[in-house]
Design a protein around this nucleic acid. Structure first.
Ligand SMILES: NC(=O)c1ccc[n+]([C@@H]2O[C@H](COP(=O)([O-])OP(=O)(O)OC[C@H]3O[C@@H](n4cnc5c(N)ncnc54)[C@H](O)[C@@H]3O)[C@@H](O)[C@H]2O)c1
Ligand SMILES: NC(=O)c1ccc[n+]([C@@H]2O[C@H](COP(=O)([O-])OP(=O)(O)OC[C@H]3O[C@@H](n4cnc5c(N)ncnc54)[C@H](O)[C@@H]3O)[C@@H](O)[C@H]2O)c1
Lengths: 211, 211
DNA sequence: TTCACGCTGTGAAACATTTCACAACAAATA
DNA sequence: TATTTGTTGTGAAATGTTTCACAGCGTGAA
């Protein structure tokens, strides 16, 4: 059972290593990957040990081997089919960005309740009416969902997804989803990210005790 | 010095409390806010202690008082002026979402290098050419930046922002920004968030040792 | 007035994660 | 061959965060 933080870093390493490989490098040292990813060398080595990627004291780590090790940990055996719910500004940005970007991820269906959006193909993804959600995700065998509806709708949408058989959700809404055990939820809260920046940036200005 | 996780939760509590207040409630117990925010009651009480918000054993916490305490910790004294760089799909989603949403946050300028976008007002925000960045953020007294350009541009944009006097950055790019001490960076990595969902969802399918 | 209840506030324990620090080793050099 | 150099892999320490568990208290009931 690998901790969440580690998975996040492995995901980042992989994208960096794809680039490193494109540049023709075949080996890399932990301190180099550390610099490229914004971490400490010891952290990088630990993370690589976790995915059983062996290094060589003189040459460092074999880049292709690293990618293979990370792949075998992060990727499922098959291509992951994902449903996106809420084809608004953020939803469309996500669909557009991931279109053809990562081989193992496919946005197989999107849902909205706005009739101007349904029955169209947006950024390579067919948009269905929300009422069809259950049928479509079952028929398409979709196990993952992304929620980009307004916060007031999120709880209800999460219930629909879970009822349809979805077992992992990326939730862009600040609503805490009440889901049964066995379903995994990852939250991205853009508002709180901005508020963190405000707080930690202002430390100099305001009276903030160090300790 | 309050830890980052705590700040994230406080930001969430505040939004929940705004709603609670709209519903006419004046007091709330830690276990209720815990349920609404997806945390344990002891965690909520600790967080509130951190912002010196007193509770009453019989009535719980005064909602307005809580909001005041959180405000006085999270918000700077003035409205925060923010620059967004990269008016693409994600950048526009952010501009649109925050337009008039949080009183203390204002997207005061946006920048792009695409001439179709510059010198227009998009979602209430004037878009300038990237070459004007330094002048505009100095003139407008902007101290915070949001980076939504392609990953290859992010390092360069971060340098421009810092050079112009920006001290806090929200970076949507997976590029680790090399910034001087005193500048705070918060990263949102949507790709790694999705990959976390893939990993933790698949635990049942694949052979994953528990321990 | 006394009691029982349920909540807050918090010290201390438990748990999680990062970092240090160094033995062991491979390659390059002399 | 012996020596130097610089890296990996990892036990153990340090650090950071959450959770437990309960003393103390205010309120309402008897
Ligand atoms: N965009 C951002 O920067 C941002 C920032 C912070 C939080 N968020 C969160 O992400 C959510 C989405 O943001 P956005 O900017 O894309 O909003 P948006 O309003 O542009 O899009 C919401 C979409 O969901 C659809 N929808 C609404 N109810 C639905 C339902 N019951 N079933 C199916 N579809 C439904 C709407 O038709 C619309 O297309 C926000 O509501 C917020 O909770 C976004
Ligand atoms: N949209 C997503 O779901 C998503 C997911 C993962 C990561 N990201 C990250 O966020 C970034 C932005 O995503 P997006 O979907 O909005 O991309 P996008 O291509 O729609 O937008 C990028 C914008 O930046 C502008 N730009 C490019 N170079 C510039 C420069 N030097 N100066 C000023 N402006 C410049 C472009 O003109 C464009 O408007 C991505 O490149 C990626 O790194 C986005």
């Amino acid at each position: 059972m690998i901790p969440e933080r580690t998975i996040g870093r492995l995901s980042l390493y992989r994208r960096i290593l794809d680039q490193v490989l494109d540049q023709g490098r075949t080996y890399i040292f932990s301190h180099e990957l550390a610099k490229l990813s914004g971490n400490k060398p010891a952290q990088v080595r630990r993370d690589l040990n976790v995915v059983k990627c062996p290094g060589c004291a003189s040459k460092g780590y074999d880049v292709q081997e690293m990618i293979r090790c990370i792949d075998s940990t992060l990727d499922g055996p098959d291509k992951q089919r994902i449903a996106l719910v809420g084809v608004g500004n953020l939803g469309r940005a996500v669909l557009h960005y991931f279109l053809g970007r990562r081989k193992k991820l496919e946005f197989a269906a999107a849902f909205d309740r706005d009739h101007d959006k349904v029955n169209r193909v947006i950024h390579g993804c067919r948009v269905y009416h929300i009422d069809e959600l259950n049928d479509v995700i079952r028929k398409e065998n979709i196990r993952l969902g992304v929620i980009t509806v307004p916060v007031s709708e999120a709880g209800h949408i999460a219930d629909l997804l879970v009822h349809g058989g979805v077992r992992g959700i990326l939730n862009f809404t600040p609503a805490p989803l009440r889901i049964p055990p066995g379903v995994y939820v990852e939250n991205i809260d853009i508002t709180s990210a901005i508020e963190k920046v405000v707080y930690f940036t202002d430390l100099g200005n305001r009276e903030k005790e160090k300790e």
